[in-house]
């Protein structure tokens, strides 16, 4: 469904990805793991087509989704036409808007009123905490609730492919497992997920397949269970 081939990406003159290739099939949870600065976020920003000044510039390679190259698709059409959403690193929720407004904004370009209503229900079922906080300014939410909102917002775009950048960041262990259970639940409803994580242990536990990224190159890949038992991966990312 998504295939990234020989993707080479730069920030200014610095090359951040040195030609990486990977695929995500429909209905899968795929995770990219790796240390800080390995290029995980860069990969997602490239797929979401967020370019300069904040994002990277694609130097060569291709990103093909459902048979169409994304290279010339503007970022808002990645969401509206390709139906791929990104819950970015650091959440980037709109703190000056209420929880409800944040979710509503994600439906900006959608016309399918009935499906939107179903999607609200799905988000609130998945994250009941958000129902209680519906009318609150979202900057008053706790870190965990903000993360739920970021994922909820991605769902409200009506996408069937969601990229998540460190959904566990800043969450207490219990909340972290809640979050991953919610993601698994989404996946069982047919959502394809591309997930990046520093916490390799939990990511591999929930994902089907994984890729290990190290300083801009993929150094290992395979079935999540295999990766978990791979001695190199164990040593470098799972604490021995």
């Amino acid at each position: 469904m998504l295939s990234v081939t020989n993707l080479q990406v730069k920030y200014g003159n610095t090359e951040a990805l040195h030609g990486i290739s990977f695929t995500v099939n429909q209905g899968e949870i795929v995770t990219l793991i790796g240390a800080n600065g390995a290029g995980k976020t860069t990969t997602l920003l490239s797929i979401a087509r967020l370019g300069p000044p904040e994002g990277p510039k694609i130097a060569s390679g291709d990103i093909v989704y459902k048979g169409q190259s994304l290279l010339n698709v503007p970022p808002h059409e990645i969401v509206t036409k390709m139906r791929m959403a990104l819950a970015p690193e650091g959440r980037h929720i709109f703190g000056n808007l209420t929880v409800e407004e944040n979710l509503k904004l994600a439906t900006f370009a959608r016309q399918d009123t009935e499906q939107i209503a179903t999607d609200y229900q799905r988000v609130y079922d998945l994250f009941p905490r958000l129902v209680e906080r519906r009318k609150q300014r979202s900057e008053s939410l706790s870190g965990g609730e903000q993360q739920m909102l970021a994922v909820g917002r991605a769902l409200m775009t009506g996408s069937d492919f969601i990229m998540l950048d460190e959904p566990s960041m800043g969450l207490a262990p219990l909340l972290m497992y809640d979050m991953f259970r919610a993601l698994k639940e989404l996946n069982s409803q047919g959502m394809t997920l591309l997930l990046i994580e520093q916490n390799a242990r939990i990511a591999l536990q929930f994902a089907h397949r994984g890729y290990v990224l190290d300083t801009g190159a993929i150094v290992a890949s395979g079935d999540a269970k295999e990766l978990m038992n791979n001695p190199e991966v164990k040593k470098a990312y799972l604490g021995g």
Binding site: A48, L50, I78, V79, P88, H92, F94, G95, N96, L97
Partner: peptide, 14 residues
């Protein structure tokens, strides 16, 4: 939303 966080606005399909 733009005034708060310009970066995330295209991610909403806007």
């Amino acid at each position: 939303a733009v005034s708060y966080d310009k970066f995330a606005v295209p991610l909403m399909g806007i």
